[in-house]
Amino acid sequence: MAGLRQASTVFKVATRGRGLHEITDRVAGWVGEAGFGEGLLTLFIRHTSASLIIQENADPDVRRDLVAAFDRLAPEDHRLYAHQEEGPDDMPAHIKSTLSDVSLSIPLLGGRLALGTWQGIYVAEHRARPHTRQVVAHLIGE
């Protein structure tokens, strides 16, 4: 039996503004290069106005519908929020981030991410303007 190993990296993700930005291939490539057979991958986004989600990656309508649903749950309406300093999309972005995840745990089986057939890993950008987001990855296993 091999001993436990760890690996970590930071992915910089340039978003194009509000929407879901898939990072599955980048993450899977790094995991493959790390050479682990079994383990657990933890992803953590270093931001309060963006989040991480696992969602269907086959039909782009799913991504559009999710963004629209988030917008209905936390609309850009200055009358609703006290926090206004960073623009009309900032407080809604914080709410959307709170409603989703800032970290994900994904098992590694046979050297591969144990995602389902239609699952992809996304950075959910909740701000209107493009940003460069940082996603910390930590892998532990053997």
Rank of each mutant, 00 (worst) to 15 (best):
E56T: 04
H47K: 06
L41T: 07
F70S: 11
V62H: 05
L40P: 13
R46K: 14
R26C: 08
I45P: 00
E76I: 04
E76D: 09
T48G: 10
I53T: 14
R72I: 02
L20M: 12
L40H: 06
R72Q: 06
D65V: 05
G32S: 12
L40G: 02
G37T: 15
H78T: 11
T48S: 14
D59N: 13
D65S: 07
D59P: 08
F36N: 01
E38M: 05
A28P: 01
R72E: 10
L73Q: 04
R26Q: 14
V27R: 03
D25P: 02
E56V: 00
G35K: 11
Q55F: 00
T24C: 03
S49F: 13
G39Y: 01
L66N: 08
D61K: 05
A74S: 06
H78Q: 14
V62G: 00
R64S: 09
E38S: 10
E76L: 03
G35I: 13
D65T: 06
E22I: 04
F70D: 04
R72N: 02
N57Q: 11
H21A: 08
N57W: 02
V67I: 07
V67Y: 03
E56M: 03
I54A: 12
G32Y: 09
A74K: 01
G39W: 01
G29N: 10
T48W: 03
D61T: 05
L66W: 07
D59I: 01
A68T: 02
I45A: 09
E33R: 15
E33D: 15
E56P: 04
L40T: 12
F36A: 04
H21W: 11
P60W: 13
L41N: 03
N57M: 01
